[in-house]
Design a protein around this nucleic acid. Structure first.
Length: 189
DNA sequence: TGCCCGATTAACT
DNA sequence: GTTAATCGGGCAA
């Protein structure tokens, strides 16, 4: 069993933490698997929700690292972020996709599909599969029902521009597991 | 208060 | 390839 990621793991730059999350195993109530795609959002980044200052929605981003920032996307979906950086920085990593390995039956039931490639390949799909909603807003990431374990030593990470944003579109702050068929969109490699 | 728009997805053509 | 669904945040008035 790999080492449990504690809060201090997240107390570094998002640009350090994000690539190290590729291959790390995310479980929520026992459901999940290795993370295969994330994006970094820094407070100085116009695409970040924290860019225009603290509000009720993004407040947890302004708190200490190692907590969950969950937000509603397009009025329909939930998206999960890990708050990073020393407290005060208001930066986070968006978890975009994972390889479904644990709790397949529960994830299929919540998603209403059977195809493994459609279970967790996208931030909205991932939250629906794991059962994550705004009820998890602000929860600590190193205690149940969350469980995040360090990646193996030999992970090949792909890098590219982020998806679905309209500002700061050229920053190469999307990270993926090279060759994974569970990413929400292929990397150029 | 009203209006616009988004870190998305699924169901179309 | 395009587009509807759906609603809270943010800002103008």
């Amino acid at each position: 069993m790999r080492r449990l990621l504690r809060r201090n793991f997240f107390a570094r730059s998002v640009h350090e933490v994000a690539p190290e999350l590729i291959g790390a195993t995310l479980l929520f109530n026992g459901a999940g698997g290795p993370i295969v795609e994330v994006e970094a959002y820094h407070e100085t980044d116009p695409a970040a929700h924290s860019f225009n200052g603290r509000t009720a929605r993004n407040a947890v981003m302004f708190g200490p690292p190692g907590y969950a920032y969950v937000y509603r996307s397009y009025g329909i979906h939930w998206c999960l972020n890990f708050v990073c950086e020393p407290e005060g920085s208001a930066s986070a990593v968006l978890v975009r996709a994972l390889a479904p390995e644990h709790g397949l039956a529960a994830m299929r039931r919540r998603r209403g599909v059977t195809d493994e490639r459609l279970l967790c390949s996208g931030p909205g799909r991932l939250c629906q599969a794991l059962g994550i909603t705004d009820k998890q807003y602000g929860l600590a990431l190193d205690v149940p029902p969350f469980e995040i374990r360090a990646r193996p030593d030999d992970v090949a990470v792909a890098v590219g521009p982020r998806i679905g944003i309209t500002r700061a579109v050229d920053h190469p702050w999307r990270y993926g597991l090279k060759g994974s068929r569970f990413v929400s969109k292929p990397f150029r490699d």
